[in-house]
Design a protein around this nucleic acid. Structure first.
Length: 193
DNA sequence: CCCTGATTCGC
DNA sequence: GCGAATCAGG
């Protein structure tokens, strides 16, 4: 796959929306997240603020001397390079408060499709029963930080196990179970007797 | 372990 | 220009 105009555009759009590189890569298809990140950098929009041209040259004296697998002497101009006497006292405040900012980036949660349905989403339930077929069926002892802790079956019987699929980051359950575990709220609202 | 972006460098 | 490998952090 190559970076056609359309693909680049989609990349820009998604990146602008705060989508992660992996998601973008997944969406584009045919590329890895690394490819996406690489492209993002080459496009000069590494920082999601780069919209209007305020290119902040964040000089990161970060990783420098890395443990290279082999001693590559490819580049080493070994230029004495006089230190940069340019103080650059950080002038330029903000002449203009940045005119049109795209929009406030949610940062983080991509927010779900739409919690319009207050009741447990039938689709979510279907998803659950479907993934339960692929469940690892772990025992309590086998659960770890990253295994879905959704219980299945009756604890009083032998037919009991935990989902065990990879959890959704930060949550105790896998994607499918998170879907039914964390409801938009309100479904059971007032069940007055 | 999973995921994120950042950087390097051979191609 | 491209992106795998690698780094660094969460």
């Amino acid at each position: 796959m190559s970076w056609t105009d359309e693909r680049v555009e989609l990349l820009k759009k998604m990146w602008g929306e705060g989508q992660s590189a992996s998601q973008i890569a997944k969406e584009l298809g045919g590329v890895t997240r690394n490819a996406v990140i690489g492209k993002v950098h080459r496009l000069g929009l590494s920082n999601r603020s780069g919209g209007g041209g305020t290119a902040k040259a964040e000089t990161k004296p970060k990783a420098e001397a890395k443990a290279k697998p082999a001693a590559k002497t490819t580049k080493k101009p070994s230029a004495p390079e006089a230190a940069k006497p340019v103080p650059e006292p950080k002038a330029e405040a903000r002449p203009a408060p940045t005119p049109a900012r795209k929009q406030i980036i949610p940062a983080g949660q991509p927010l779900p499709p739409q919690p319009s349905a207050n009741e447990i989403d039938p689709a979510a339930l279907a998803k659950v029963s479907e993934i339960e077929k692929k469940a690892k069926k772990l025992t309590l002892m086998e659960l770890t930080e990253r295994t879905c802790k959704w219980p299945v079956g009756d604890p009083a019987t032998e037919d009991f196990w935990f989902c065990g699929l990879p959890v959704q980051q930060g949550k105790p359950y896998c994607e499918a179970h998170v879907g039914v575990a964390f409801q938009p709220m309100s479904s059971r609202r007032d069940r007055r007797r």
